[in-house]
Write a protein that binds this DNA or RNA. Structure first.
Length: 155
DNA sequence: GCCAACGTTGGC
DNA sequence: GCCAACGTTGGC
């Protein structure tokens, strides 16, 4: 089962928001590489939920894909900040998926901690200058991060 | 708020 | 198709 990591600014949409709403469309992605990854997602894929552009950036929980890629409605909405006048309804440029809440970690797995793990060195997330907001995660990497979350819970 | 890194745009 | 200018991301 494939695994992914998706970034969200908690001021805009946090893991607590997802927990409360249970399911939410993941829209507004306007990067082709990220979009292409979203189009590869399958129902049941697990997602590391990452908080970015905040006081403590890091992985904060787990979500699950509950609907595969569909045309992102915000691209056709002139009132949306994600409106894309170049995208045509007959040939939508941008995709969204739907995610479902699975778990919220009791503590943030901080970016610092992720950077210090040798097994995570190949993740785009920890590489300098990388800004990708949706990325695949190797099963081994997913296991390391969820184990970090469990270790923290026990202390 | 700063700024490095990177993606996109648009003139040529 | 090149590439400079510009905009955005995201950690700090």
């Amino acid at each position: 089962m494939p695994f992914w990591l998706m970034k969200s600014e908690p001021d805009v949409f946090s893991i607590a928001d997802l927990q409360r709403k249970r399911r939410e469309a993941w829209d507004g992605v306007r990067n082709y590489q990220a979009r292409n990854y979203m189009r590869q997602m399958a129902v049941g894929d697990e997602v590391l939920f990452y908080h970015s552009s905040c006081a403590q950036p890091g992985v904060v929980g787990i979500a699950r894909i509950s609907r595969t890629a569909f045309p992102d409605p915000t691209q056709f909405d002139p009132g949306s900040e994600y409106f894309d006048p170049g995208s045509k309804p007959e040939d939508p440029r941008w995709s969204a998926v739907e995610v479902e809440f699975l778990a919220s970690f009791p503590e943030v797995i901080a970016l610092d901690a992720l950077k210090s793990m040798p097994g995570l060195a190949e993740m785009p997330l920890v590489k300098r200058g990388n800004r990708l907001s949706v990325m695949p995660v190797e099963p081994e990497q997913f296991a390391i991060i969820t184990a970090m979350a469990r270790t923290r819970t026990k202390r």
